[in-house]
């Protein structure tokens, strides 16, 4: 069992944090996991992405060419990565910002009003967790509970005040 996902969006949408939460939770469930971020000049122009592989076996290359799933938080990311998804793969889009057609009928597309739901919770920055919640529900590779714990660990003492709203967002995404 191996699951490969690319998470992409604008810089500032918390892309790296989403990936880190997912990777951390996978580690907590004793899976092999790799996280590979875009970095440096690649990040200029305001888009960011990270690639996560979760597996029950040792992982070879951390670079994901043909993902099982994509989480696209903005239009440019959806445009760039959708065509790479494996057949029968999964596309999760933040439909508050992504409106175009995917152009593929061989994948499952899930539309989440992530930004809108986050705004409803009082902070649009947690749109990333809404999207992550719905990804976890679709993929079922990790327990929601583990992700909540990882969130707490990663936010740490300094950002303790943000734990509740992030967990709420994650759960709302999961419930959809």
């Amino acid at each position: 069992m191996q699951e490969e996902v690319i998470i992409a969006g604008f810089g500032g949408q918390g892309i790296m944090f989403m990936g880190t939460v997912l990777a951390h939770a996978a580690m907590q469930e004793n899976k092999s996991v790799t996280f590979f971020p875009s970095y440096g000049a690649e990040m200029r122009g305001g888009t960011a992405n990270c690639m996560i592989i979760m597996s029950d076996e040792d992982i070879g290359s951390p670079v994901v060419a043909r993902p099982d799933g994509i989480i696209a938080l903005n239009q440019p990311s959806a445009d760039k990565f959708t065509r790479r998804i494996k057949e029968k793969g999964l596309l999760i889009v933040n439909s508050s910002l992504v409106t175009g057609e995917s152009g593929r009928d061989d994948i499952k597309k899930v539309e989440v009003q992530a930004t809108k739901i986050a705004e409803g919770l009082g902070d649009k920055r947690v749109a990333n967790m809404v999207a992550l919640g719905s990804y976890i529900k679709e993929v079922k590779i990790l327990k929601l509970e583990t992700l909540c714990k990882s969130l707490e660990t990663l936010l740490g003492e300094k950002k303790k005040n943000l734990v509740d709203i992030n967990i709420k967002a994650l759960k709302d995404g999961y419930k959809l």
């Binding site: 580690m27 996991v33 996280f35 590979f36 971020p37 970095y39 670079v63």
Partner: peptide
């Protein structure tokens, strides 16, 4: 790639 990637 190795420098930037995360693993347990």
């Amino acid at each position: 790639v190795l420098g930037q990637m995360m693993e347990p």
